[in-house]
Simulated assay, not measured.
Amino acid sequence: MEQGRSIVHFVNVGKTYDGERLIVDDLSLEIARGEFLTLLGPSGSGKTTTLMMLAGFETPTRGQILLNGQEINRLAPHRRGIGMVFQNYALFPHMTVAENLAFPLNVRALGKAEVEARVIRALDLVKLGGFAARRPAQLSGGQQQRIAVARALIFEPELVLMDEPLGALDKQLREGMQYEIRELHQRLGVTIVYVTHDQAEALTMSDRIAVFDQGKIQQLASPTELYEKPRTSFVANFVGDNNLMAAEVDTLRSDHLCSVVLEGGAKVIAVATDELMPGQKVMLSVRPERLRLDPDAGAGTSSRLKGVIEEIVYLGDHMRIFVRTANQVRFLIKAANKEPHHGLTKGGMLTFGWSAQDCRALPV
């Protein structure tokens, strides 16, 4: 990252509550000014604790957190100038929408005319211009979340933190809010650090995603790189649907490919994602949409397997086909419904395959 571009810098940050188990383990991370960074991971992975340390609600056990080059480890939350959006909205129920929005401005002792002008602009920003006199109880969940976002932005912070802000919304509202928050980010250029356990949400909204597990970042990359080029079996399995197979490296090739042997003896070709050695145990990863039902007709198909169809699920634009091979590996295949797939029946045999470039050999 270029000098001066980072707004936040975690330097060897650790956090423990009992003096033994590290919730966050030696975290070093730079967040670029103006980027949308998502902290993604399962419950207990350290992502929310990382956000809370940045917000000032938790204190690091060791290491430094820098904001614009200044250490903020001991700085009170209200003195950090950071906007915050919570899952439960955290709106004051006894205040009107306008009063909720004005609160962070009044705390900063802005003049009445400036406060009124900013409240109007903030309501227009989230497309709720006629809602100033309502109270939170008179708003839908989606409207309350828009007001929470507007309140976090109204004092024009450089940095906004969002902790699972869409978790309480239903699927349709959540997806709509994802695009609205992303649009606001692009329009305003504010830096957003966003916490979620929802992989699709992270892929939809982020410039970069940091995947957390056991207190460490397992991979930090763009959504495309994270999905297409996972570096570990955890990332491959956690981000999106995947087929994972235990295997052993047989031979290495000069084109970054390797021949591997599956349990049961079948040989396939895969991309070597690391410095691998013959005999090394690996986990193969191939996305279900990259599997082909008719590999003989597919250009570039290098690996083929056969199995019994256990289940076929129709989902409108595609089918999910579950196949079990002779060595008891269960595969998920996503097949687009652009044309009918004749002859597919539960209990029938199916030959399927994939290109070597779509299969990754990951160290275990």
Rank of each mutant, 00 (worst) to 15 (best):
G34R: 02
T38H: 09
G41F: 13
F36K: 00
L29E: 03
T38I: 05
G44K: 07
G56T: 02
P42C: 03
L40S: 06
N73I: 05
T50F: 11
L75I: 14
I31K: 06
E35G: 09
L51G: 01
G41Y: 12
T50M: 04
L29C: 07
A32N: 14
L75V: 15
L66M: 11
L40G: 07
D26W: 04
D25A: 00
M52Q: 13
Q64K: 14
H78N: 15
A76H: 14
E35R: 04
D25W: 00
M52A: 11
R74N: 15
R79W: 12
A55Y: 04
R79A: 13
M53H: 08
M53Y: 08
N73D: 13
L54A: 03
L27W: 01
P77H: 06
R74I: 03
T38K: 05
H78Q: 15
R33N: 14
R62K: 13
G34Y: 03
K47D: 06
F36Q: 03
G34L: 04
P77F: 12
E71Q: 12
H78V: 10
G69H: 09
G69A: 06
E71R: 15
Q70F: 13
A76C: 08
L67D: 04
E71G: 11
N73S: 13
T61Y: 09
A55N: 02
G41M: 09
G56F: 00
L66I: 04
H78W: 13
N68A: 10
L29Y: 09
T59N: 10
S28M: 02
L27A: 01
L66F: 11
K47F: 13
R33I: 04
T59Q: 13
G34N: 03
S43W: 02
I65D: 10
G34A: 02
Q70L: 13
R74D: 15
L66W: 05
G41A: 11
Q64W: 13
M53I: 01
K47I: 01
P42F: 08
T38M: 11
L29Q: 05
N73H: 06
A76T: 09
E30C: 10
L75S: 08
S45P: 10
E35F: 12
I72G: 12
G34C: 08
G56N: 05
D25H: 00
S28Y: 00
S28K: 01
T59L: 08
E58R: 02
P60Y: 03
T38L: 10
R33C: 15
G56V: 00
M53Q: 03
L54N: 04
R74W: 14
P60Q: 03
F36G: 02
R79C: 12
L40F: 07
F57I: 01
R79V: 07
E71M: 11
A76E: 13
I31G: 01
Q70V: 14
F57H: 00
M52L: 15
N68G: 13
A32T: 10
S43A: 12
G44N: 04
G56L: 02
